[in-house]
């Protein structure tokens, strides 16, 4: 009894924190920037991580099975993965990760907000596990899949950011307006200051070329980071799909039935394998591979959500073997 109460408390706390962070974010974006609150959002992310971990652990203890058996639990796990991916660079003490955080932190916050909001209350209850899911493979397969989705989503969002920056002509919005500056400013602060100090006279004329140089650097960084994250996500996706195939063989006798969920996971894997291959060939350029990774974003959502939603509408959602 105490564990379900604890889980309830943690859900409320995490929702409150998430609401506050989103409020701060939108305030900063549209109204006025408060520089001091940047650190608050970092602290909030750490607290959210602890809350989500607590929720998952108490759910595990309360229901007796690994908390990944329905959509609610897997979304919770997804937001936990986003938080972990957000935290990892900080642990390894890479200082220049503001770019990365700009993608992972909002993802974690929005996913967690969606999960703990009132939209999914009917799934909150701990459910029983159907016979087919009572296996040790559940832990490995589904957790790897959700982790890979989180990593690949981050990577493809970074590619989307890269495309956005490539296609933006004016750099004004980055250097002067308040909108994204509480995320981006720490990168450019020193450089702009340096330029200002050095060359006050030519400031206006040099500004544009300095802007272009920074933009170029930003694109390079985004490119590198998206490639790294997508490689990691690809590794997890490979392990997830293969462990799923082995599990299917143990449970139902066939390691690959072409049912929609498995097929779409394989399609996602193929798309990102193509992405990795376009990067080995230098002629393709970073822009084209970024476009590819952005389509990967859509495909992951189809794979994760779309298949479940469509499966309700279609006639018979079942598995068909190769016969």
């Amino acid at each position: 009894m105490i564990f379900s109460t604890l889980e309830h408390i943690l859900t409320h706390i995490s929702f409150s924190i998430v609401s506050i962070v989103i409020t701060i974010f939108f305030m900063t974006l549209f109204v006025h920037e408060i520089v001091g609150l940047y650190n608050s959002s970092e602290r909030a992310m750490i607290v959210t991580l602890f809350c989500i971990t607590g929720i998952l652990v108490t759910r595990w203890i309360d229901s007796g099975h690994f908390p990944l058996s329905n959509l609610y639990e897997s979304l919770m796990f997804l937001s936990w993965s986003f938080s972990i991916i957000h935290m990892v660079p900080k642990i390894r003490n890479h200082k220049k990760k503001n770019l990365f955080s700009a993608i992972t932190a909002p993802s974690a916050i929005f996913t967690q907000g969606f999960v703990t909001s009132g939209l999914l209350t009917e799934m909150h209850q701990s459910t029983i596990l159907v016979p087919a899911l009572q296996s040790q493979w559940l832990m490995m397969h589904v957790s790897m899949m959700v982790l890979s989705y989180a990593a690949l989503l981050c990577g493809s969002l970074l590619s989307v950011a890269l495309l956005v920056i490539t296609f933006r002509k004016n750099m004004e919005i980055f250097c002067q307006s308040d909108s994204l500056s509480f995320l981006i400013r720490p990168i450019f602060f020193d450089k702009i200051q340096y330029v200002n100090e050095k060359n006050n006279v030519l400031r206006n004329t040099c500004f544009l070329s300095v802007q272009n140089y920074h933009r170029y650097q930003l694109i390079q960084q985004l490119d590198r980071w998206s490639c790294r994250v997508i490689s990691l996500g690809f590794l997890f996706l490979t392990i997830g799909i293969l462990s799923g195939a082995v599990w299917a063989n143990e449970a139902w006798g066939s390691y690959w039935n072409w049912d929609p969920k498995e097929t779409w996971a394989f399609i996602t894997w193929t798309i990102f394998a193509i992405y990795l291959h376009t990067r080995t060939n230098n002629n393709w350029g970073s822009k084209n591979s970024a476009i590819l990774a952005s389509t990967g974003f859509l495909i992951i959502w189809i794979c994760y959500f779309g298949v479940n939603l469509l499966g309700i509408g279609l006639h018979s959602y079942g598995s068909f073997t190769l016969n």
Partner: peptide, 22 residues
């Protein structure tokens, strides 16, 4: 050849780092 995440252009070593936790 190196892997797909190889950097295409020579980049200067990034000297100034902003402190994430001032």
């Amino acid at each position: 050849e190196a892997g797909p995440c190889e950097e295409k252009v020579q980049a200067a070593s990034d000297a100034t780092q902003n402190n994430l936790f001032p």
